[in-house]
């Protein structure tokens, strides 16, 4: 612990990142450039999220990391241990107990409170990137609020697939002004972007930070005759029986056997502890033994 400055980054760097975060909060959805640092992990593994977390963590915080909703995957475990080692903060897997949650591609099922911060890892912050490759041009489009092109992408979806096929990284308009990439969360999570907690987005390789303040209006883009729909697998969780959570599909044998389970592991475990059992599940205590 003493070998590192608190939370790995030096104080000047954290101040620089905090300034970017404050600017991001002041202009919801606007991508603030920042001087992204080299982190002891490869780009694409959450270097942006880690820098944002490092800048907002205090010694009193309780930290939680999820990767696609799960607390026990490689990426989540290594980032959690990273801050355990370099910041010495308490860590948890319970959404309820965490004050800072770093996430890769999910929003926890349980509603966040206004004393919680959600930090997203963002691979590509520019929602217009694949439509307009020039960054000079896309910045101009943001500045002048020229967002017609975003609907061209949705138009293409409908003309090719008969419905808006974009299932993740679904573009949103924040507070009636900036169009924003919510990072590759499933569109099921889009309605949850209007929440009590502070949401911070960090893109390390692309050197951008943006934010959504609490209770900010976030609207998913759509057409009048093809309205936005938050979709999920039409199933209940096979472990805990939840019908309102986002599900992962798991192939369990080579005979077509499959099961659906909550992608949010903490939510699923919590429900099972309360005694809910899904179609293929077993009561919580038996499983633990």
């Amino acid at each position: 612990m003493t070998d590192y400055n608190f939370a790995y980054l030096d104080e000047q760097t954290k101040r620089m990142i905090r300034r970017a975060i404050l600017k991001g909060l002041a202009i919801p959805g606007y991508q603030v450039p920042f001087a992204s640092r080299e982190m002891p992990m490869p780009y694409g593994w959450g270097t942006g999220g880690v820098q944002v977390s490092a800048a907002v963590l205090t010694p009193d915080d309780t930290f939680k990391v999820i990767d696609q909703g799960a607390d026990d995957t490689t990426n989540a475990v290594s980032i959690r241990r990273f801050f355990q080692k370099t910041a010495g903060v308490k860590v948890t897997e319970a959404t309820e107990e965490a004050s800072v949650i770093q996430t890769r591609h999910r929003i926890p099922e349980q509603d966040l409170r206004d004393d919680q911060i959600l930090v997203y890892q963002v691979p590509i912050p520019e929602p217009l990137r694949f439509l307009e490759p020039s960054e000079v041009e896309t910045r101009k489009m943001h500045a002048l609020e020229e967002y017609g092109l975003m609907h061209v992408k949705l138009y293409e979806d409908i003309s090719q697939h008969g419905a808006i096929a974009t299932a993740y990284a679904y573009p949103v308009k924040v507070e009636g002004r900036y169009v924003m990439d919510p990072s590759p969360i499933p569109k099921f999570d889009n309605p949850k972007l209007e929440m009590a907690g502070i949401q911070l987005f960090g893109a390390g390789r692309e050197q951008r930070i943006y934010a959504i303040p609490p209770y900010t209006q976030v609207v998913s883009l759509d057409f009048d005759d093809y309205p936005f729909e938050a979709s999920k697998a039409d199933h209940a969780c096979d472990l805990c029986g939840a019908e309102d959570s986002y599900l992962d599909e798991l192939i369990v044998d080579d005979e077509g056997g499959r099961m659906f389970m909550c992608s949010d592991t903490d939510y699923c475990a919590g429900r099972r502890k309360q005694g809910h059992v899904g179609a293929q599940g077993v009561p919580y205590a038996e499983d633990a033994a």
């Binding site: 439509l131 017609g148 609907h151 061209v152 293409e156 003309s159 090719q160 009048d224 093809y226």
Partner: peptide, 25 residues
Amino acid sequence: RMNVSAGGNVGERLMAVNARHYGDI
């Protein structure tokens, strides 16, 4: 836009002036 369909190419200018009805476009 070479990677966008003919319909999308024609529709882009309409969407740029806030046409938001797929059928009409």
